[in-house]
């Protein structure tokens, strides 16, 4: 199951091509943000430039291609640097929750017995809270801010991976290649990392791709509620919260401030859609259960 094989699978269906394109598109925007939208304050590039002090949004113009939102923040700049924020939040939270989940799940599944029982009950406790509520509470307690959001999302985001990996380990433990490695005296650590993990990592990759979108949505949701990114920070969730007061429009012109909502809303929807389509495609390619028996086709 090589890399080129996965790549070939990704270009089979139009939806997965769309997913790949969207993810690539946002990666390019995020990577080249300093050139696409040069920062006004180079020391703090994530702070949105203000074009004035009036509260009322102003429509797209030559100077502000997407217009300005509440507080005269430039929307175009916010979208471009918001893509960077999204990648930063997504990669860090997904990376660390997957890592914690893999370690915890491996220990639980490999050793089994009371170790497994205790770890799984601890997992249950973390899962007892609704994800967004738990993340919101922890963010509030730690003090607002993007880094606090990420800590909170990781704290309540690792359990899914742990369960996945544990399940795969329980199955793999009885496989011949593991029993053989044990019989010739390979150490536990080396069996876990060299033998079992490489064979059980695929579900985690699929899950990680799917949760890139949902983690970014959760972080944006907290910013939307006003307990996340600081005022004026390039974050799509916050930009949507700026749009909230203007969404009903002016009397007789419901669409007057459409740009305040359309651009940040569109950006986050497309970003999440891209990752979801990619995750869906990866599941079709990598999940052996969906592929049917080997060589049957």
């Amino acid at each position: 199951m090589g890399f080129s094989w996965v790549l070939k699978g990704l270009f089979k269906s139009p939806t997965s091509v769309l997913g790949v394109c969207l993810v690539l598109f946002f990666s390019i925007i995020a990577l080249f943000a300093p050139w696409i939208a040069p920062p006004e304050y180079p020391d703090e590039p994530y702070l949105l430039p203000k074009a004035g002090w009036s509260a009322e949004p102003s429509p797209p113009s030559a100077e502000h291609p997407f217009g300005t939102t509440e507080g005269q923040y430039d929307i175009f700049y916010g979208i471009v640097w918001g893509a960077r924020t999204a990648f930063k939040v997504g990669l860090i939270t997904v990376g660390f929750s997957a890592l914690i989940g893999i370690v915890v799940g491996s220990i639980s599944g490999y050793f089994g017995g009371w170790v497994d029982e205790v770890i799984m009950r601890v997992t249950d406790i973390f899962m007892a809270f609704p994800f967004l509520v738990a993340a919101m509470v922890l963010t509030t307690i730690l003090g607002k801010g993007l880094d606090k959001i990420m800590i909170a999302l990781i704290t309540f985001g690792w359990m899914g991976y742990a369960r996945l990996i544990r399940g795969s380990f329980l199955a793999a433990k009885e496989e011949l290649y593991v029993l053989a490695a044990k019989a010739i005296g390979v150490s536990d650590l080396s069996i876990i990392f060299k033998h079992i993990l490489p064979n059980t990592i695929y579900p985690v990759i699929i899950q990680a791709s799917m949760s890139m979108g949902s983690m970014v949505v959760s972080a944006s949701a907290l910013s939307f509620l006003g307990i996340g990114a600081p005022e004026g920070y390039a974050d799509w969730g916050q930009m949507i919260s700026y749009a909230r007061n203007w969404i009903v429009g002016a009397p007789g012109d419901a669409l007057k401030y459409w740009y305040t909502f359309f651009y940040p809303g569109g950006a986050i929807v497309l970003f999440v859609l891209g990752w979801n389509l990619l995750g869906d495609a990866l599941r079709d390619i990598l999940d052996p259960k969906l592929r049917g028996p080997r060589g049957a086709r």
Binding site: G213, A221, F224, I268, V272, N276
Partner: peptide
Amino acid sequence: AIIGWSLPSFVFGIF
């Protein structure tokens, strides 16, 4: 369905 599942509630709700 996949679009619905990609719509954050704070975007869809405001809409």
